[in-house]
Every structure is written in structure tokens, then in C-alpha cells.
Design a protein around this nucleic acid. Structure first.
Ligand code: SF4
Ligand code: SF4
Lengths: 155, 155
DNA sequence: TGAATTAGCACCAAAACAGTGCGGTATCGA
DNA sequence: TCGATACCGCACTGTTTTGGTGCTAATTCA
């Protein structure tokens, strides 16, 4: 299906929340509890998702009380494509373009497939679309202003 | 997952094949058997897919011997978006944007979701991408030039 | 110490997906 | 008319993916 997984949506919500907090209190760690206090998301799941994001160097984590997560980079440099890739692997669009999906023996049609090449082009376009959407552009305008005091009118 | 279903891929292959035949022998019906003679696709499945395409007025069908399918419109006017929509519903990208996915009680986060609106914009872009990709642009350039006649008929 | 928080691992139930069976109906050709 | 061909409709099954959970260990701060 052409749809983001719930995990990815939760990841986006978490990242947006962390970014919002980071805008007003730079350096503060946001815990999983903070996130699911604000949004009705299972806490266990948000931790699962954040863990994956941490492994892909999108967030940094800190244990213990006062621990939690912060963005590893600025919201401008984190793209939707990176988030999706971290949470569900690179968007393959077709089965054969996915390295992880080849475990099922690959596609029988592969050698004579007439749509592989053209669909590949579409996939590249989709990738470009995701790569050109930054986390910052997902933030509400008010937050974006706080993020760059010196260039509040940018974007 | 951000991936087309196998059904959609089969539908695309079938449509490409039908379009190729139509370019050479306009008005001729292409049977499901013809398609799965060229490509190792279960015949039963390709029929299932073509049926869905027929219900969405993308192909026309004809029963009996010499029966089969033809494109209901020109390859230029059939878009990838229409095909995907016919085969797996409108690309929702998120759960809440899908009318058919609301049966599961909807999304708990919906009322306070911070990403609904921005992700909706991305979804619109994705839609635009699919809508601007016509079936014709999926065809090989040499479609009108050659078509191997009935070199292989019986399976 | 002890409470809070992330990390790691395995595990489960429900849904979606891929694929199939069988009988019916329309159509063409002989 | 008859029979073969090919689509039509519904329901059904096995497999994969997804969404979600349990529990324990490691880390950090008060
Ligand atoms: S080879 Fe063709 S049918 Fe097979 S997965 Fe790739 S695009 Fe799809
Ligand atoms: S409301 Fe938000 S979390 Fe829920 S489905 Fe829509 S985008 Fe996803």
C-alpha cells in the first residue's frame, strides 16, 4: 500500500514535538513520557520508534532522570526521506528495488519485466520529493520563527 | 509501507502489454492468457486485477473466444494515479486521510495531531506526481515500431 | 541507594496481502 | 444448436507485515 506506517507517523509526531521543545529550550532532553503525555500514543511504541531514530543518528539519547532525546541535527538538515528510511527502510515502490525484500527469492518477472525501468524513474521522483521535505517544513510556523531568531522571516 | 502492491505491479504490466498490442492492432482484444503467456504471472490473478481496472473504466472487456481487454481510453489519458487508485484505493499516505481506513475507529491522535496538515501537503504532491505520469510514459519508446507477431500462441 | 529513563530482545494478535477454487455467464465459430 | 473460450463473482486459505506489548538490563541523577 502507498501509505506510511503508524510507526513512521509516531516518529514524525515525536520529532515534531522534540523540535518544538528544542526551539524554546535548546539542549533539554525530551523523554518518551513527555511525548505520550501530550499525544495518545503507547509509550512503549514511541520508545521503539525513537530507538530506531537514534540508531540512524537522527536523535541523540540520554538515560536516567532528566534523560530523553534531542535532535541530533538541525530541523533543516533532517529530511522526511531520512525519517522514512530510518523507520521502514528506503522506499522501494516496487518489490525488486528493495534489498531487504529480495529474501523472498526475488521477483519471477524480473528478467522480462516491462515496467521496472519506467517505474524506477517514478521512484526516483518520489525519493526526491521526500528528500526535499525537511523536518522544519513540518513544524507549525510559530515554532519555525522561534528556531531562527536572527532570520525569523526566512522560509 | 511506501510500496506498491503486487497487484498494482501486475496491473501495470498488463496495461503496458495491452497498450503495446493496441498500438499495433487497434481494436483487438487481449486476453488474460496472452498476458500470462509473456510474463510469469498467475492467470487467475491477472484476471482479478483486470476486473478491478474494468470497474474503474480503465479497460473494456469482451467475453467469449476472441474476447479479452482493450484500453478504454488512450494511453495518454490514463494516469498512474488512476491505476493505483483503482487497484488499492486513493493513496492516503496517512491513515486518517483514507476514507476506507476509518472503519478501524479512526485515529486517536486525530484531534491533536501536529503532523496531519503538513503531511497532507506532501500527500498532495505525491498525488500530483502520480497524476502527471501517464501510461504512455511507461511504455518503451519503440512501442509503435515493432511487435512480435504470434510467434508463440499455445502455451 | 533508589527512582527514572533508555536499550535490547523476544513475543503476540490482528490486519493486509498474494494467490486459489469453483461455478456461472456471455460470445464466437463450426 | 452445440461446444469451446474467456470473462465474472464470490468466497476461501496461507503467508507476511504491522501494531503493540513484557520483561530485564544498563545508565544517570538526586
Ligand atoms: S521485476 Fe517488475 S514485477 Fe517484479 S518487483 Fe520489479 S517491477 Fe515489480
Ligand atoms: S491524525 Fe495524525 S497520527 Fe492519526 S492518522 Fe492522521 S496523520 Fe497519522
Amino acid at each position: 500500500m502507498l501509505q506510511l506506517t503508524k510507526r513512521t507517523e509516531y516518529g514524525l509526531i515525536a520529532l515534531v514535538h522534540i523540535a518544538e521543545r528544542g526551539a524554546v529550550d535548546a539542549g533539554a532532553f525530551v523523554s518518551a513520557r513527555d511525548i505520550c503525555d501530550r499525544y495518545p500514543i503507547p509509550r512503549r511504541l514511541v520508545a521503539e520508534v525513537l530507538k530506531a531514530l537514534q540508531k540512524n543518528d537522527l536523535v541523540e539519547s540520554q538515560r536516567g532522570p532528566t534523560g530523553g532525546y534531542v535532535l541530533a541535527r538541525s530541523p533543516e538538515s533532517i529530511t522526511l526521506g531520512q525519517i522514512v528510511t530510518a523507520l521502514e527502510g528506503a522506499p522501494p515502490l516496487t518489490s525488486c528495488e528493495s534489498p531487504i525484500l529480495l529474501k523472498s527469492g526475488g521477483c519471477e518477472v524480473h528478467s522480462v519485466c516491462p515496467i521496472r525501468s519506467p517505474v524506477h524513474r517514478v521512484r526516483e521522483q518520489l525519493w526526491g520529493l521526500l528528500e526535499h521535505t525537511s523536518l522544519r517544513s513540518l513544524l507549525p510556523p510559530a515554532t519555525q520563527a522561534h528556531y531562527a531568531p536572527r532570520a525569523a522571516h526566512a522560509r
